[in-house]
Amino acid sequence: MVKQILYFLRNEDTKIVDYWFSTYYMRSEEYALRKEYPEYLIRKKETVLWLFHKIESSLDHGYLNTSTLYHYGEDAKDIKTPLQSLFHNVIIYL
């Protein structure tokens, strides 16, 4: 069953991230502050897809690479994304 789930995640990765972006991220405070910067939004999707792959890869090897999430959180902190918003829009829905 786990192999089937991982297979699905690998094959639908872009659709999953696109769904998260349009359904949850576009309702966030961060999006409201940065929606006028299309290049930022493109990079945001690319970063989340990259994170998705890193997490999936580490789970495939039997562990969760938390350093990747830590660095993502540090980047969000640097652009003053509230921690609650970051947690709500990335960890819960992705």
Rank of each mutant, 00 (worst) to 15 (best):
N89F: 02
H53R: 13
I91F: 15
W50E: 13
L9Q: 11
Q84G: 11
E46S: 08
E46V: 05
W20D: 03
L59P: 00
I92Y: 03
I55F: 13
L69P: 07
L83D: 06
L86N: 07
V48A: 09
L9H: 06
I5V: 15
N65L: 10
G73A: 08
R34E: 02
R43L: 10
D13C: 11
H88S: 13
H61R: 13
S22Q: 10
R10F: 07
H88G: 04
T68Y: 14
K35R: 12
D60T: 13
V90Y: 11
F52N: 08
F52E: 06
L59V: 05
I16H: 05
N11P: 01
K54M: 12
T68R: 13
D78N: 12
T23C: 04
K80F: 11
H88Y: 09
F8H: 12
Y72G: 01
L41G: 03
Y7G: 09
K15F: 12
E30R: 05
F52A: 07
H61E: 13
L59Y: 04
A76K: 05
I91M: 14
N89V: 01
S57Q: 13
D18N: 15
I5Q: 09
L9I: 08
E74Y: 10
L49D: 00
H61N: 12
D75C: 11
H53N: 13
Y72A: 10
Y37L: 03
Q84N: 10
E30F: 04
V90G: 00
E46F: 02
L6M: 14
L64H: 06
K77Q: 08
Y40L: 03
M26K: 15
I79S: 00
D13H: 12
Y24E: 05
Y24C: 03
R43T: 09
N65T: 01
K35E: 07
L33A: 11
T81P: 02
W20T: 02
P38M: 06
W20G: 01
E29N: 05
R10K: 15
E56R: 09
E36K: 07
Y70P: 00
K45Y: 02
L51E: 11
H61I: 02
S28M: 05
L64P: 04
T23A: 08
Y31I: 05
D78E: 14
S58Q: 01
I91L: 15
I5F: 13
K3G: 05
W50D: 06
M26N: 07
Y25H: 02
W50A: 11
E30Q: 06
L94Y: 14
P82T: 07
I5W: 14
G62Q: 03
V90W: 08
S85V: 00
E39F: 04
W20N: 09
